[in-house]
Design a protein around this nucleic acid. Structure first.
Lengths: 69, 69
DNA sequence: GAAAACTAGGGTAATTCGGGGT
DNA sequence: AGTGTCCGAATTACCCTAGTTT
């Protein structure tokens, strides 16, 4: 079909992330709004989350924080 | 400044774009019909999308599309 | 020419959004 | 401060069949 290797960053849906953290999807949305989790928006306004970032969070990997003293 | 002779714009299939956004191919079609994403039609009526535009959209770059069906 | 995979189109259920209140 | 739940509205996902692409 297409011979061009498109860089694909696997994205997760809100419910996917919610299931991984055992919380409500609404809570994941709040994390995104609070800037604790980066989110990518679909053209319709729905949020998608980076699987790699979520995995790091689940593994207790500290995220990049601005001015951490 | 920079002249592009024959711009060989890479085109993506609906499923390609759908994978990048983590949505259904049908959703990408909806975006094209809504004018949120410019589409190029094949002679048979299938849609193709500009990779550069899709990447900009994924990066949160707002697009300016006057009219597109 | 033929087969397999993908896409278009319509309709309905599930998910998500945003705000408000516990 | 943080989370789960309710409401209404919008967006998205899955069902099917026919046509297009490779």
């Amino acid at each position: 079909m297409n011979a061009h290797p498109v860089e694909t960053e696997t994205l997760l849906t809100p419910s996917e992330v919610a299931t991984l953290f055992r919380v409500d999807p609404k809570t994941v949305t709040r994390w995104a709004k609070a800037g604790k989790l980066s989110s990518i928006r679909t053209l319709g306004g729905h949020r998608r989350y980076r699987e790699s970032e979520v995995r790091d969070l689940l593994n207790g990997v500290p995220q990049q924080r601005p001015s951490d003293g």
